[in-house]
Design a protein around this nucleic acid. Structure first.
Lengths: 195, 195
DNA sequence: GTCTATAGCGAGATAGAC
DNA sequence: GTCTATCTCGCTATAGAC
């Protein structure tokens, strides 16, 4: 008897994605059951399969959406001829974007190993494209003498790791404002590349 | 009395730890079954419980051993009065130590969320002690004017994230030797703190 | 579109033979 | 010290009612 009428499929889909994102980030993909996700959304476990083929596809869709979002936001930034300006723009963009999406960032790094090979390759390719963008800025700056660094690609890895690390310790309401954190990181980035 | 022990018992314990470390790092704690670990070792699942109380304890023991190993190795380094020398020593030590223990490093960061609260606190305390060591070097260097940085604690977070990142991309047999990678990172670290 | 119910499986952990 | 056998539980995914 008593089944929920009047529920909107329009809102159930995003609610499933939000619940899965939060739970996967908090406990890990393998540790979260479809039942937990359903409970969080307020539906029965079987209902989830109206919206996703299976658990793996749900994970992949979350990661793919995150990476597409990231690359689209990067592409939407205004072009910068000056390597130093481009690096500052990238630094601040990366910090802001990642900080605002801690759960998705965490999952997209952490759950790579839980993707089936084909899905893994597709996500990895997008991640490489993002890294290549920064490496390109650094290589240009190195060529023009704006930067002084031994290896542009390695520096790109190092800087991205440094910047992404902010998601592991920064908490809203702490002693430092996000703007201040941005300035401090930009100061270190700038120096690290010998600008 | 001194009844002679079965010879394989001496080797089974470390073999369990090695198998668990490798499998947890590769697939994640929650995704690995006790049966898989047992198969890897070449024993039956029930045999594992001769060596560990349960799966959670096995994870905690691996992480605790890793952190104790890290702190002991850090404490064994020769004292350095000069902040710059201390920073270089720390940088090279961190890279070498983490690079040689990729699986344990990965687990100790990734599986924190799968620890029960009490176990989590104990591991976190050791991680904070390690961070505090670097923050101390930076604060001393800032006080003496050797370094130019806005925030020693934040810089410690940033540098550790940057250095630990090497474990995600460095592969033996790649184009760069570990010594070369060390030199490149040390170059960036040095510049980043305004030395 | 969501529910109840369940099939089918594999998990963690334990008991007792050898 | 290790094995076989098993208990009990919770999981993913599906079927069919409403």
């Amino acid at each position: 008897m008593a089944r929920k009428k009047n529920s909107s499929a329009e809102t159930t889909r995003p609610r499933i994605r939000e619940a899965a994102l939060r739970l996967f980030a908090r406990h890990g993909y393998a540790a979260v059951s479809m039942r937990q996700i359903a409970t969080e959304v307020g539906v029965q476990a079987g209902t989830l399969y109206l919206y996703t083929a299976d658990k793996q596809t749900l994970l992949f869709d979350l990661m793919q959406a995150h990476m597409q979002d990231l690359l689209a936001a990067l592409a939407a930034l205004p072009a910068q001829d000056d390597p130093l300006a481009a690096l500052e723009q990238f630094t601040r963009f990366h910090l802001r974007h990642h900080r605002a999406r801690q759960d998705a960032v965490f999952i997209s790094y952490m759950e790579l190993r839980n993707l089936e090979p084909e899905n893994f390759e597709r996500i990895e390719a997008m991640r490489r494209a993002y890294e290549a963008h920064l490496a390109g800025i650094l290589a240009r700056g190195k060529a023009t003498g704006t930067f002084d660094l031994p290896d542009a690609k390695l520096a790109a890895y190092a800087l991205i790791a440094m910047l992404t690390g902010v998601t592991t310790w920064y908490r809203e309401g702490g002693p430092l404002s996000l703007a201040r954190v941005e300035d401090i990181y930009w100061d270190m980035v700038q120096k690290a590349v010998g600008a």
